[in-house]
Design a binder for these strands. Structure first.
Lengths: 348, 348
DNA sequence: CTGAAAGCGCTTACAG
DNA sequence: CTGAAAGCGCTTACAG
């Protein structure tokens, strides 16, 4: 209404809190209060200020705000990899939860390098907290994570005495059930484990469960019953091919450390006329969407992916908002999901 | 060396530029210069400052820095979805490139909601630029994206006159080749299109290419040759089941608008003893890893996913660093990748 | 080459 | 309930 026109701010482009204050005829302190502590302002003034904010399309400068509040509502996420069923579902879950709680995700699979080269750590100082997923036993710089003085949660690794939140998955429970089912129809000396390289936490744990189950069945696994390389379709394929060369891919049961390996094996079998589950019984791990895409459908061990994502986000946010709260160490269970590839009970 | 001890800073926790200055015996301006314009400082002084930085483990406060420089080296990424082969590979590519160029990714699949509810837009003001992927024709708020006064690149949508960078994929080229191959062994009235809902940009374009190829072959597609719902395994499955009910799933050729739909169809066929490719010829779209996991392997149209990701990241960064540079509109080609599911030439 | 000083756009005691 | 003022931790002309 004034003759001031709708421009108002002496500086060029951006509308600052000052422009809003001028337009609403109040001090910048009041504008700030309307935005952050509305109850400390008379509703009359608040209304005028809000109108000005609206008219000017004012959006507070988050750098200035962060300088004072030390908060960005951004959570840093560092994963070993971004690609693949597992990680993409995990990220989706974290994003959903973070969004609900008013936070954003700063994601990087390359953040691991970052930790070693602090010059690149840039944006790490913009985040309010950190979620780091670890899959390798070595090169674990948990202390380093603690030193960044941000609230942090670690996924995939736990050790008594760690001063960060941890979330781990109990590979044992589900793996044990899976192997036990295989042992119901196949003798332990005809059971095989195909996993990732030694040092990979999950693969190692799944292997341990496999060995334990076999021992319980009275058989100490031979070296040739255990094969390890990487979590990939190709590795499963190669392993199966070499078994075929030796004429050993029949009448056995395989516990693969993830679904991709399992599918590689299934395809090699298929291409050579070895039938699932009658000649080859197969179980994967992760219970990814791939299980339902395979024929016969792949038995697998369910990873609680979304639960992990949710728990991680909730944990960092709790630590961000209540820094003094005790750090939690969660363990999520895995469960065996039986489908056709491992043979239905009774049909064997 | 001084008797000052290694504490130095009057305030409690964090080391600021002030502490570094004191320890090195220089002004804060000099510290800042060493970090940002090393050549404007004598190497003697620089050395002392760097030592202090190292000793104190100083890391500049990025909020303060951003307040001045208006830069965070963070790129916002908004995708329709995070999960799935396509998006996760896209994100991986963007992350790799961003990391190489010294940037970070702030990712959200929920950012679409954000654009409508500015209160949640929070972190959007922390980013230097924006990459937005669009898949739906409606609800496209391109202008809104322009109004956020950040450099922006849009993936998936182009229109002459847009003042943002755009990157699109030429669905036609690859789709046309795929359908042409199907037409080599199957008459046009026995070709089917199974895609996502009307309004999905990619599905629509792939359908258009399908229709065009059929017309070129002298046949105007009947309504029942076109089915649309969503990009999912289940939809492909359902479609195939209904065709089976009508006894029509034999001796036909199907162009599916993505690999998931195609695999749903393949599995339904398989479960009912319909053989690929002799009785049912099938082509998918995306050329995802899933193609190699299927048996017979799925012919598909390759999406240049990594190229899209790289191009998008490079484009925003170019606009961030050279705001006056002309906006580019890129179009990437798709190519037909022939495998067994569509029938090898000569074998039909 | 270096330092004192202004200022980026906010928030928050402190008075009133 | 509201405003004037100090200050968050930096960068950058401006003098010297």
């Amino acid at each position: 209404m004034k003759s001031q026109e709708s421009s108002g701010n002496k500086h060029s482009g951006v509308v600052s809190i000052r422009s809003v204050a001028e337009r609403a005829g109040v001090s910048i302190a009041t504008v700030s209060r309307v935005l952050n502590n509305p109850d400390k302002v008379s509703s009359e003034t608040a209304k005028r200020v809000r109108a000005a904010v609206e008219d000017l399309q004012y959006r507070p400068n988050l750098f200035a705000k962060g300088l004072l509040t030390k908060r960005s509502r951004v959570i840093g996420v560092s994963l070993p990899d971004i690609h693949g069923e597992f990680y993409s579902e995990l990220m989706g879950a974290m994003d959903d939860r973070a969004c609900e709680l008013g936070y954003h995700l700063l994601v990087s699979s390359n953040a691991h390098r970052i930790e070693s080269r602090p010059e690149n750590g840039f944006a790490l100082d913009l985040v309010d907290g950190l979620i780091v997923m670890l899959t390798e036993r070595s090169g674990v710089d948990i202390d380093g994570i603690g030193k960044l003085n941000h609230p942090a949660v670690v996924i995939g690794f736990d050790e008594p005495g760690l001063d960060v939140e941890t979330i781990i998955v109990d590979n044992r429970t589900g793996a044990q059930r899976a192997v036990e089912q295989l042992l119901e129809g196949t003798s332990p000396d005809r059971c095989y484990f195909v996993g990732s390289h030694r040092g990979n936490i999950d693969s190692d744990e799944r292997l341990a469960a496999f060995c334990e189950a076999l021992r319980k069945a009275g058989h100490t696994p031979r070296a040739d019953q255990i094969a390890r390389r990487e979590f990939s379709f190709d590795w499963g394929w190669e392993w199966a091919e070499s078994m075929l060369d030796e004429g050993r891919l029949e009448n056995i049961a395989v516990f693969a450390a993830n679904d991709e390996i399992a599918i590689g094996i299934a395809n090699a079998a298929r291409d050579h006329g070895v039938e699932l589950p009658s000649e080859l019984r197969l179980v994967g791990f992760d219970d990814s969407r791939l299980c339902r895409l395979l024929r016969p459908r792949l038995s697998s061990v369910r990873m609680p992916v979304r639960e992990i994502g949710y728990a991680a986000v909730e944990a960092v946010i709790r630590r961000i908002e209540e820094p003094e709260s005790a750090s939690m160490h969660s363990r999520l269970a895995t469960t065996f999901v039986q489908r056709e590839s491992s043979g239905l009970p009774g049909s064997l």
